[in-house]
């Protein structure tokens, strides 16, 4: 499924993350190592508190690990400053959230343009790429609609388009179907599958086995450690695999 010259998009080495919560020190990650090649579609699973969200934040360059190293698309990022991390998020990552997280009272097109705005892409180029991304999720004709006038499924598709617009090395989806009914979930997962088949690397956090079944690789977290890593599957049949 991945291209002939697959490169390593993500390399996590012995990542730990602990933080203070009142008196207690919480060890959210206890030495996770992970390598993701370009063109992979990875589902990260695990119960709440298993460290999957923390891992997602670190993967998304929203948080820095306490120890360990992280190379994203060949760049070592664990020691970068805030502004540099912002640039990495802008150039290399695309986020899809559970709650869509579009800017309200703002058109679909402008939402999709947003990462390009912060990437200092010139206006005409911005528009072109945003429209391109919208047509990839089949919403080109809704470009002018305000985000709050769209249905939940459409909003999530706009969010996917926004993640695509910056042409990132990796798309991170955090429970992308959590707020959607089963029909719309299927629609969204079809889009992810199609994008993946075009060579786009996706890492998705979910706790639903039937959603995870769309992915080509499933990683399971438990108590801050990776306890399962199975490849294969990726068929759309919805045959869930027990975590």
């Amino acid at each position: 499924m991945s291209g002939p010259a697959a490169t390593e998009v993500v390399r996590l080495t012995d990542i730990t993350k602990s933080y203070q919560m009142g008196e207690e020190t919480v060890h959210a990650l206890r030495g996770a190592s992970l390598s993701v090649q370009s063109g992979e579609f990875v589902a990260i699973m695990g119960s709440s508190g298993s460290g999957k969200s923390t891992c997602m934040h670190i993967l998304g360059c929203l948080d820095r690990p306490s120890s360990g190293s992280y190379a994203l698309d060949g760049e070592t990022v664990q020691d970068l400053g805030k502004d540099q991390l912002a640039d990495i998020r802008n150039r290399k990552l695309g986020f899809v959230f559970q709650g869509f997280n579009l800017l309200s009272r703002t058109s679909a097109l402008e939402n999709v343009e947003l990462p390009l705005v912060y990437g200092r892409v010139p206006a005409t180029e911005r528009r072109k790429r945003a429209l391109e991304a919208l047509s990839m999720v089949g919403l080109a004709e809704r470009a002018g609609h305000l985000s709050n006038q769209l249905s939940g499924g459409q909003q999530q598709r706009v969010a996917i388009a926004r993640a695509l617009a910056g042409r990132p090395a990796l798309i991170l989806a955090d429970e992308p179907t959590g707020n959607l009914d089963s029909h719309m979930s299927e629609e969204i997962m079809d889009i992810f599958t199609r994008l993946n088949s075009q060579g786009i690397t996706i890492i998705m956090v979910t706790h639903e086995p039937d959603i995870a079944a769309y992915a080509s690789r499933r990683i399971t977290f438990l108590d801050g450690c990776i306890v399962g890593d199975t490849k294969g599957g990726g068929d759309n049949g919805g045959q869930g695999e027990a975590a």
């Binding site: 912002a86 997280n101 912060y118 926004r162």
Partner: peptide
């Protein structure tokens, strides 16, 4: 929340 979205998308401080 809007600020969070903008930051995740790559807005600098």
């Amino acid at each position: 929340r809007e600020i969070g979205i903008r930051m995740a998308i790559g807005a600098r401080e």
